[in-house]
Computed example of a mutant assay.
Amino acid sequence: MGVSGCGKSTVGEALAARLNRRFVEGDALHPDANRRKMAAGTPLTDADRAPWLDRIREEMSRAEAPLVVACSALRRAYRDRLRGKGESAPRPVTFVHLTETRDVIAARIEGRQGHFMPVSLLDSQYATLEPLAPDERGCTVEVSSDPTATVQAVMSALERTVY
């Protein structure tokens, strides 16, 4: 989880490979209307995000084994929705909040090609972001410029936090 450009996809793919798990790219599950809205520089509303979060939750629920999902999950309410709060979840959901300075993330967003998320929406993501609460299963990891080092930091944090 984290704001756009923090490395969710890169770290998520590498983490999934390390754990021998399937990787799901949450951005691929956005409805076209959401992608168009963000590409036009308009932040998503909770109503825009709801069907997207439901699609991700459905993907997680259908999985036969634990998987790694890249998803912003910026608010507690979104994470609760992904966890299936109030429902019987097939397995616990653990969140890894990837963090980095706004300037570094803005430079990453500006440097990437072919993504629908413009740097102009970064401040709205930070405004929406609610870091993990102490009662939420997960950890926060500062992203390194080296994805391998970040994956190792995630693995270490998960071992301390979850296991």
Rank of each mutant, 00 (worst) to 15 (best):
S156T: 08
W52M: 15
L82T: 06
L53P: 03
R75E: 10
K85Q: 12
R83P: 02
E130H: 02
Q113E: 13
S9G: 10
M1L: 01
L15C: 07
R76Y: 02
V68P: 05
P31C: 08
V11R: 05
A73M: 01
A14H: 08
A17Y: 02
T10A: 15
P66W: 06
A63V: 03
M155H: 08
V93P: 02
E87G: 05
Y163V: 07
R102M: 02
R57N: 10
E142H: 07
L53N: 09
T42V: 14
V24M: 06
T99R: 12
K8Y: 01
A73G: 10
A157H: 06
V69S: 13
R75H: 03
L132H: 01
S9M: 05
D103I: 01
A107W: 04
S72F: 00
T161M: 07
G7M: 07
L82V: 09
P51N: 13
A106G: 13
L98W: 05
I56M: 13
L19A: 12
V93N: 15
R18T: 09
S124Q: 11
A149P: 03
T94K: 11
R83D: 13
V154Q: 12
G2L: 02
L74I: 07
C139A: 08
L15D: 10
A127F: 00
D146F: 00
E159C: 04
V143L: 07
A17V: 02
D146P: 05
K37Y: 00
V154I: 09
H97W: 12
A47K: 12
M60F: 03
H30Q: 11
E59M: 06
L29K: 08
T42P: 02
E142Q: 10
Y126A: 12
M117H: 04
A47R: 14
A47M: 06
P92Q: 11
C6M: 01
M38Y: 08
F116T: 14
V162N: 11
R57K: 13
P90W: 07
P131I: 07
A77P: 04
M38P: 00
T10E: 15
R22M: 09
A33K: 06
E136P: 00
D46H: 09
L67V: 07
T94I: 08
G111T: 10
A89F: 01
E25G: 03
P134T: 11
A50D: 11
Q152F: 05
M60Q: 14
Y163I: 02
V162I: 07
K85V: 12
G138I: 05
T161D: 13
S156C: 01
R79Q: 08
A153R: 14
A106K: 13
G41Y: 00
C71E: 02
N34Q: 10
D27S: 09
W52S: 13
Q113Y: 04
G2C: 00
A149G: 06
L53D: 11
P31E: 15
A73W: 04
E58I: 06
Y126P: 11
K85E: 15
D27H: 07
E25A: 14
A28V: 00
R137T: 00
L44C: 13
G41V: 01
E159Q: 14
A107E: 15
S120N: 13
A70E: 04
E25W: 03
V119Q: 14
S120L: 08
F116W: 08
E136T: 01
P147E: 10
S4I: 01
G111E: 15
G111S: 14
A14P: 01
Q125F: 05
L121G: 11
L98T: 03
Y126C: 12
V96G: 13
T45Q: 12
D46Q: 15
